[in-house]
């Protein structure tokens, strides 16, 4: 691109998001939020579930986790068949 300025570069990978302690803090925060989201299901009763699975505690939690993993793994498998060098169409 013609528009970009000369990009300055810095070798030092420093910053709040690169400190191991902070990364740990973020992960702990996420785990706590996950537990809270599952725990919150005990605070109410869904009077109008459309499907039986909606009555299971933590159904969408487990589903979200599993679906994410399956999607990523299927993507990895897909890559075996479709990945090509960047200049594939140029050659």
């Amino acid at each position: 691109m013609n528009e970009q300025e000369k990009v300055e570069t810095s070798e030092a990978p420093q910053g709040w998001f690169y400190q191991p302690a902070n990364i740990r803090l973020l992960i702990i925060g996420l785990v706590v939020a996950c537990l809270a989201a599952v725990g919150a299901q005990f605070l109410y009763t869904d009077d109008h579930p459309h499907f039986d699975v909606e009555k299971w505690y933590g159904f969408q939690a487990g589903f979200g986790f599993a679906a994410f993993v399956v999607v990523v793994m299927l993507g990895k498998i897909l890559r075996i068949f479709v990945a090509r060098p960047e200049d594939y169409y140029d050659s």
Partner: peptide, 20 residues
Amino acid sequence: WPHVVTQLQLLLFAALAFVV
């Protein structure tokens, strides 16, 4: 309540899967 909580469950656990 059911909608907000279940949606948060789906998204947060998906994020957790990413971390794992």
